[in-house]
């Protein structure tokens, strides 16, 4: 046998045996182990995916629960806030009403108090003024005053209608002179017949004539009274003007 042919045949057989042995002892078990490993990996991957899905689901549940709780909490809080605000508003309104009332009451009280004080002041001032006027009249005094007052009373009598004067009552501070009496009778006209003449103390000077139509006061005390009254009225009117300072400034 030639060495080359022997080598050729030997190598062919050698390689076929090698392939068979490698196939049985190397490739087959390694392939099997590989597929087992791959199956294990796949199972693990699947398991991991399952766990991941489960975890995601749980996460979603937790998220939903948290969102619900949050919404509930928000609602509760807003409701509480609303009720508190309403309560506060109510309290505020009540307080405002009470304060308003209180203020009104105090204002009224203050106004009353000031009015009373003002009136008192006016009275006092007017009384003082009237006394001054009365003293002035008394200092003037004398028959001139008496006749001037009677003249004034006569003029007033003449302005009244003649028929309705009666009954007439004439009071004088001083005894009337004949001229004065005549003037009065002239002024009284037809009613002079029933006239009652009297001399009274306290008038100061002048006459006071009570007629059917009313009282004609031409005496010093009457004038004083009248002056006092008109002063009081004037002062009240000025005080009721709500801007006395301004009127003072205007003056």
């Amino acid at each position: 046998m030639s060495p080359t042919l022997t080598t050729f045949l030997f190598e062919a057989v050698n390689f076929i045996v090698l392939t068979a042995v490698l196939g049985w002892l190397f490739f087959k078990p390694v392939r099997q182990a590989l597929s087992e490993r791959r199956a294990k990996f796949e199972a693990e991957t699947q398991q991991a995916a399952q766990k991941l899905a489960e975890a995601e689901r749980m996460q979603r549940d937790i998220d939903a629960t948290r969102a619900n709780l949050q919404a509930e909490l928000n609602e509760l809080r807003s409701r509480e806030l609303e009720s508190v605000r309403r309560q506060a508003e109510q309290i505020l309104t009540e307080a405002r009403i009470a304060a308003e009332r209180q203020r009104e009451i105090s204002r009224r009280q203050a106004a009353q108090m000031s009015e009373t004080q003002r009136d008192t002041l006016a009275e006092v001032a007017a009384t003082a003024a009237a006394e001054t006027v009365g003293r002035l009249f008394e200092q003037i005094g004398g028959p001139e005053l008496q006749s001037a007052l009677i003249e004034s009373a006569c003029q007033q009598l003449r302005s009244l209608p003649q028929r309705t004067i009666a009954p007439v009552k004439i009071e004088s501070a001083l005894p009337l002179s004949p001229e004065q009496l005549a003037a009065l009778n002239d002024a009284l006209g037809p009613a002079a017949s029933g006239a009652d003449f009297r001399t009274v103390d306290g008038l100061g000077a002048g006459v006071r004539i009570a007629t059917g139509q009313g009282l004609i006061d031409a005496s010093v005390s009457g004038l004083t009274q009248f002056a006092r009254q008109s002063l009081v009225q004037e002062m009240k009117r000025l005080a009721n003007n709500h801007n006395p300072l301004q009127s003072v400034n205007d003056a």
Binding site: L18, V21, L22, L25, F26, P29, V30, Q32, A33, L34
Partner: peptide, 14 residues
């Protein structure tokens, strides 16, 4: 040598 190495590798792999 190749067969020996391959058998060792297969043994280890298994």
């Amino acid at each position: 040598l190749l067969i020996a190495t391959a058998v060792l590798l297969a043994y280890l792999a298994t």
